[in-house]
Amino acid sequence: MNSPVKIGCIIDDDNTYVNLMSTLIKMKKLSEKLLVFNNGQEAIDYFEDTLQRGAKDELPQVIFLDLNMPIMNGWQFLEQFDSESCSGCSLYVVSSSINPSDIDRAKRYPTVTDYITKPMEITTLEEVFASAS
């Protein structure tokens, strides 16, 4: 990999998963900065504020989105997420659900790059960041 992704993002309310992913991303030096949001609403608020300030360079290049969260779940986030304003973002749905209808539904969103089942393998994590850098 040439250089790490400037900004990565995890949207997930599972602290254990977030801590593990954060540790792996830092250990492997895959991202210079990592944003973490506990639900979709926190992420939407950050994206809207960042765009209003004209700070597109503060938007993530890689987003990992969980589906089951309080306040605003992943499906609600996908409905509100504006991929045009976040051009250059690769959004991955990362869920423990292996339900084919969830996978198909997620892949119908044009903003979704791929669906990854938890737990994510380290090689998959590295491939995601390599393709975004």
Rank of each mutant, 00 (worst) to 15 (best):
M1I: 15
K6D: 15
I7H: 09
I7D: 07
C9Y: 01
I10F: 01
I10W: 02
I11M: 03
D13L: 10
D13A: 08
D13N: 15
D14M: 11
N15I: 11
T16L: 12
Y17C: 11
Y17E: 10
V18M: 13
M27Y: 08
K29E: 13
L30Q: 01
E32P: 13
V36A: 05
F37Q: 03
N39H: 12
N39C: 06
E42G: 06
Y46C: 03
F47R: 02
D49N: 11
T50M: 00
L51E: 10
R53P: 10
A55F: 03
V62P: 05
I63H: 07
F64K: 02
M69K: 03
N73P: 15
W75A: 06
Q76M: 14
Q76E: 13
Q76C: 12
D82S: 14
E84C: 09
S85H: 07
S87L: 02
G88I: 07
C89R: 04
Y92F: 09
S97C: 15
S97A: 14
I98E: 04
P100S: 06
D102S: 13
I103E: 07
D104L: 07
R105E: 15
A106Q: 06
K107Q: 03
P110S: 06
T111P: 03
V112F: 08
V112M: 06
V112A: 08
V112I: 09
V112Y: 10
D114W: 01
Y115R: 03
I116E: 04
I116A: 06
T117F: 05
T117Y: 04
M120K: 05
M120C: 08
T123M: 09
L125E: 00
E126L: 04
E126Q: 14
V128R: 00
F129D: 00
A132P: 03
A132H: 01
S133Y: 04
